[in-house]
């Protein structure tokens, strides 16, 4: 079963929940994969402390111009929807950082002056964190396109033979978030009872609906503020809130120290138990 842990707002505890869920499910001899797809700021390793065994480059296909033989006809520029190729007079320029790898230019260039070139955008690391198989995508600093590396690390993770594959998603609702959850059987949305948390939950839920996903909601720092609006919204959307992680000093101290509170804070364990139980119920419903 593929579980995406997502949510539009940053800093609500997606990685806390994703890593704890991986550890919780891994306790009962399940084969568990944890995939850190938050490639702009992967930090699941801070909780899981994996031993990295292999690092593979992640790359995207971009055009490279054979300028010496190019006729400068400009067909490539007119086909490029992303303004990544410019042609002025006989001069043609490729801006590979703007390229979306649609490959239309390779087809359009009748003279075959554009060749495929791999542009390195980041790295995919693989290893073990205890009995959890660990994957992480890390985008190069300054790289503008996030989704391709997210897709690559997710595809690498979901190829594994496993009982549970947990995909720690990037925040937001852009292409990167779509890439992180499109393969998932269930999306666990993590949020908090604040106006920002509610605002961004609405966006995340709308995205999940568009992708036809089963969704569960985990409220982190559940007793932080007034959750009246949040609960009313969840009721109106008929989405299950399956866990309420307390706003707890011990959890904060442990996470700040790079330790998972699982196994140390009973109230936290109890909530992770609820998340796992909800996932098991969904799993039975799907099967």
């Amino acid at each position: 079963m593929k579980i995406a842990v997502a949510g539009a707002k940053g800093g609500v505890g997606k990685t806390l929940v994703a890593t704890a869920l991986a550890q919780y499910l891994g306790r009962s001899n399940h084969r568990v994969v944890y995939c850190d797809a938050d490639v702009e700021g992967p930090n699941g390793k801070l909780f899981l402390h994996p031993d990295i065994e292999r690092v593979h480059p992640g790359s995207v296909t971009v055009p490279m111009l054979n300028a010496a033989k190019c006729s400068g006809c400009g067909t490539c520029q007119s086909i490029c929807a992303f303004n990544a190729i410019l042609a002025v007079g006989k001069k043609v320029m490729v801006f590979s950082e703007l390229c979306h790898s649609c490959e239309a230019c390779f087809i359009a260039c009748a003279d075959g002056m554009l060749t495929r070139h791999n542009r390195h955008v980041g790295n995919i690391s693989m290893g073990m964190a205890g009995n959890i198989r660990f994957f992480e995508g890390a985008l190069n600093v300054g790289e503008a396109r996030v989704a391709p590396l997210v897709s690559q690390v997710v595809h690498a993770a979901v190829r594994q033979a496993a009982d549970y594959i947990i995909i720690d998603n990037p925040p937001g609702t852009s292409c990167a978030a779509v890439a992180g959850q499109e393969d998932a059987d269930v999306v666990v949305l993590v949020t908090e009872p604040t106006p920002f948390g509610l605002h961004d939950l609405k966006l995340a839920l709308a995205l999940g609906r568009r992708l036809n996903k089963s969704m569960l909601v985990v409220l982190n720092r559940a007793d932080l503020g007034d959750d009246k609006d949040m609960m009313a919204y969840l009721a109106s959307e008929a989405v299950d809130q399956v866990a309420r992680i307390p706003f707890d000093r011990q959890i904060a101290v442990m996470t700040a120290d790079g330790k998972s509170p699982l196994g140390y804070v009973p109230a936290f364990d109890e909530q992770m138990h609820h998340v796992a139980a909800a996932i098991h119920r969904l799993q039975e419903a799907i099967a």
Partner: peptide, 17 residues
């Protein structure tokens, strides 16, 4: 190109030329 999703600057550069 002012409303282009991306690459507005490169398109305006062509316009200038």
């Amino acid at each position: 190109a002012s409303q282009a999703v991306q690459g507005a600057g490169t398109r305006v550069a062509v316009l200038m030329a």
